[in-house]
């Protein structure tokens, strides 16, 4: 589903590469934790998958496509197959929960009829069936993140990318979010989650890829956050 072949990413005005000769593959349906300190290259990894950035060297393949060969007008098509969730939720404050989720469908030209059916379904899935009319500001952090996940998942993407989705949440709320991501993963959606949260990684026992200074230093199936050090 996602394959990195010897990918190096240099940012201008930085001597050290953000990613340094990374090769790895994520299979369809996998749940992968991306761990490592700040600046280890986790976000760059996600940005390369989204084709927000292009690699300096090497090739990134997503859903069978070589992103280097993908012309820019096909990038929206790629992104429709990827759902994204961030630490800061990124909801539109002046739209209701339903409207926030519907927005993701409106802007890719889905019909009103289709939106009217799909949005309640996905709100039900994330456990917010009765809060569609609320504004994001009226919800707790955990609920806001559920809205963001609903928006990312409403278009049934093949891959869900999550950048520190529990970073702003307390541990018990985080557990709820992880259950939700796990459920989404069980529908066959590949999930890649960058995180600092050792407790979550340890409890989930999924594949762990650890980055350090832009290099993959560990790739473990059913891994833990770190060796107890």
């Amino acid at each position: 589903m996602i394959r990195f072949d010897n990918v190096t990413k240099m940012y201008a005005q930085q001597a050290r590469p953000a990613l340094d000769d990374v090769s790895l593959e994520v299979e369809k349906g996998e749940f992968v934790f991306l761990v490592g300190a700040s600046g280890s290259g986790k976000s760059t990894f996600l940005r390369l998958v989204l084709r927000e950035e292009r690699p300096t060297q090497g090739h990134v393949h997503v859903a069978g496509k070589d992103l280097a060969k993908l012309s820019s007008w096909k990038v929206p098509g790629l992104r429709r197959q990827l759902g994204t969730v961030w630490q800061d939720f990124r909801l539109l404050p002046n739209k209701t929960v339903s409207q926030n989720v519907a927005f993701a469908l409106e802007v890719i030209g889905r019909s009103r009829h289709q939106i009217a059916t799909v949005v309640p379904e996905v709100l039900d899935l994330v456990g917010l069936a009765d809060k569609g009319g609320r504004l994001p500001g009226e919800l707790s952090g955990g609920e806001q993140q559920r809205v963001a996940i609903a928006r990312a998942f409403v278009n049934r993407p093949m891959v869900l990318l999550a950048d520190e989705p529990t970073g702003n949440l307390d541990p018990s709320t985080s557990v709820g979010i992880m259950r939700l991501l796990d459920r989404i993963n069980r529908t066959g959606t590949t999930v890649v989650m960058a995180t600092h949260d050792a407790q979550i990684v340890d409890s989930m026992r999924r594949r762990v890829i650890e980055l350090e200074g832009g290099k993959v230093v560990r790739d473990q199936s059913r891994g833990v956050y770190g060796y107890s050090s």
Partner: peptide, 17 residues
């Protein structure tokens, strides 16, 4: 920018944005 940022990431075409 917030709206257009979301639009880009959910795969709205440039025309739509």
């Amino acid at each position: 920018r917030r709206e257009t940022g979301i639009m880009r990431l959910v795969g709205a075409s440039n025309l739509y944005i």
